[in-house]
Structure formats: C-alpha cells, structure tokens
C-alpha cells in the first residue's frame, strides 16, 4: 500500500475521535439545546421548529451518524444567526486565518533560524545567553498582550500599520501585507521563541558529530562546514517542528484575530459562542481541528521526503 494511503489510514481514527468529541461536546450542554440557542424569550413554535430541524427528538446515535454523513459530504449545517450554510461562512474566512498563520510561521522561522544558528556557534557566550533569555521571555509573553503592545506602540505611532481589520490579497499584496504584519509578528514571536531553542540545540548536537570533525580535519573552514554539513542535518528536525507549529498557529489565530479585529475562522467561532450558534461553533471547531490534523499528516509525509533515512515500514 502506498505510504500516503497508509498514513491516511493511520490518521483516520484520530479524525474520528476529533469529530466525535466535537459532536458530543455540544450535545451534552446543560439544559435544552434549542432553548440555549434561541434564548429564554424564544416562542414555543420556534423552539419546536429548531428541535425538529436538529432532530433533537431522535436518539443521539442516529443524530451522530447523520451528522457524520453530512460532514463527509462537506455539509456543516446552516447557521441560525447568519442564515447561511456554515461551510460557506468558513470558506470565506479561511484565507484570513491561513494568512495570519502562514505570516506568523514566516516570522517564527525568519527570526529563529538565524538567531538559533548564531547562538549555537557562540554557545555560552553573552550573545547566546541573551538569545536564551530572550527565548524564555518570548515564551512567557502572551500573544494577545504582545498584540496589544504592538497596537499601542506601533500602530498608534506609525500610520503604516492599521489598527484593525483585514485586506484580502486580491485587494493588492501591499495592502494585504500591511494588515497582516502586526498580527503575524504578535503570533509568530512566541513560536520563534520556542523554535530558536530547537535550532540552537539541533545545531549544537550536530556540531559534536564525527563528520564535522572529519570535515574540519580536511581543512574546511568552520563557516563552510556549518553551511554545507551541519545546517543540512540540523534543520531536519527543525523543519518538522516548524511544520507542526503551523497547525498550532491555527489555534493561536483565535485570540490574535480578536485583538486585531480580523474576520477569520477564530472570530467566527467566538461570534458563534457569544450568539450560542452551536452549528457555527461545531463547524469552526471541526474545521480548525481537522486542518491541524491534516497539516500534521502532511508534515509527517514531507519528513520522509526530506530525510530519506526515515521510513514507516
């Protein structure tokens, strides 16, 4: 069986658990779901209509199987607040969330790679210790607080960065980038802090290997050994973890979208929660979680392509 098919089969149980947890979490809500969604002032006929629409009068197992069937066909139901199919709402917001997550990834890797390598080359020097201390600080600063500080310090002072909102890529790359920079920096800094330690550790570990000693023994300059030999090996685990971070950043965007008023998936989820629109909540959660799981799978597969020593036989 091809590797992709085998990995897809392996990830299937996880996807099923994700779907089941998402479904069950919103079925065990204390009280009457219809009442929770429509509020205490809802008319009895509206409540009855919603119960019928959601099949709340039927057994849970039946509803679950039916929901799974709809999910497999990409049907996530219809929002009661937007009066639109949830799938359409999600598709409209997905580019925002992916843009922020990708932008944050670029910031994280762009900061962590050079800093990690420089720190490793001068391990235990004052510069290295400063990088390590900075990484500790970066991990401790909440992304949303950093976002607020950026708004206070940069957006207010430099008119280049807008305070709130988003511009689609189709409206012009420059405008898109202008709106994306601060959210990406706010979200990416914390990941950079985590990644820089990994880059540093990985490069340091590779530098103790025999092949480095051999290369140096042959008379190769330290910079050449680092570039041609050490980095190629050291960056394999870094690439994997950086890839996994992308999925993690999908979760991180929920808060950042709120700080910068970005109309993404996270904001849709929160608006769903505030409005008790459980269909939207369910759709947004399952989309983010499945994207997270599938991104992890993609990275897993990419890993075997990058490092031929790894097999799943």
């Amino acid at each position: 069986m091809p590797l992709v098919a085998r990995r897809l089969l392996a990830v299937a149980p996880t996807v099923l658990v994700v779907a089941t947890v998402t479904f069950l979490a919103l079925q065990v809500i204390p009280g009457d779901i219809a009442q929770v969604m429509l509020g205490v002032d809802a008319r009895p006929e509206d409540l009855a209509r919603l119960r019928r629409e959601f099949g709340l009068d039927r057994p849970l197992v039946l509803r679950y199987l039916e929901w799974l069937g709809h999910l497999a066909r990409g049907d996530l139901g219809t929002s009661i607040t937007y009066r639109e199919p949830v799938a359409r709402l999600i598709v409209a917001r997905m580019p925002v969330t992916l843009s922020v997550a990708l932008g944050a990834m670029v910031v994280a890797v762009g900061v962590a790679l050079p800093l990690g390598v420089i720190a490793a080359r001068r391990a235990w020097s004052p510069g290295d210790l400063a990088v390590l201390a900075g990484s500790q600080l970066g991990l401790a600063i909440p992304t949303f607080w950093l976002g607020i500080l950026l708004l206070l310090g940069l957006a207010a002072a430099v008119p280049l960065f807008p305070l709130q909102g988003y511009a689609a890529f189709s409206a012009g790359p420059a405008e898109w980038l202008r709106h994306l920079t601060l959210p990406a920096v706010a979200l990416g800094t914390e990941r950079a802090a985590a990644l820089v330690r990994l880059v540093r550790g990985s490069v340091l570990e590779e530098m103790t290997r025999d092949y480095v000693r051999t290369a140096r023994g042959k008379g190769l300059a330290a910079a050449v050994v680092l570039r041609r030999h050490v980095l190629r090996n050291a960056l394999i685990p870094v690439l994997t973890v950086a890839g996994l971070q992308l999925g993690y950043l999908m979760g991180g965007t929920i808060v950042i979208e709120q700080v910068f008023g970005l109309p993404g998936l996270g904001r849709l989820l929160l608006q769903g929660i505030y409005a008790r629109d459980l269909v939207v909540v369910q759709g947004a959660v399952i989309t983010i979680a499945l994207t997270f799981a599938l991104l992890n799978l993609a990275i897993d597969l990419l890993y075997t392509a990058v490092d031929p020593r790894i097999t799943y036989d």
Binding site: P13, T14, V15, L16, V17, V18, T20, V21, T22, A25, L26, G247, Y248, M250, G251, G252, I254, V255, L269, L270, G272, I273, L278, V281, V285, I288, A289, F292, A293, N296
Partner: peptide
C-alpha cells in the same frame, strides 16, 4: 484524538 486539537481550541470547545 484529544491531542489532535490545538490546546486553546479544545478549551474553547469545552467552555462553549
């Protein structure tokens, strides 16, 4: 399956 959720998303789901 639980680990397949980003941590904050799972927390939000439970709070929802």
């Amino acid at each position: 399956g639980l680990m397949a959720f980003p941590a904050l998303l799972l927390a939000i789901l439970v709070v929802a």
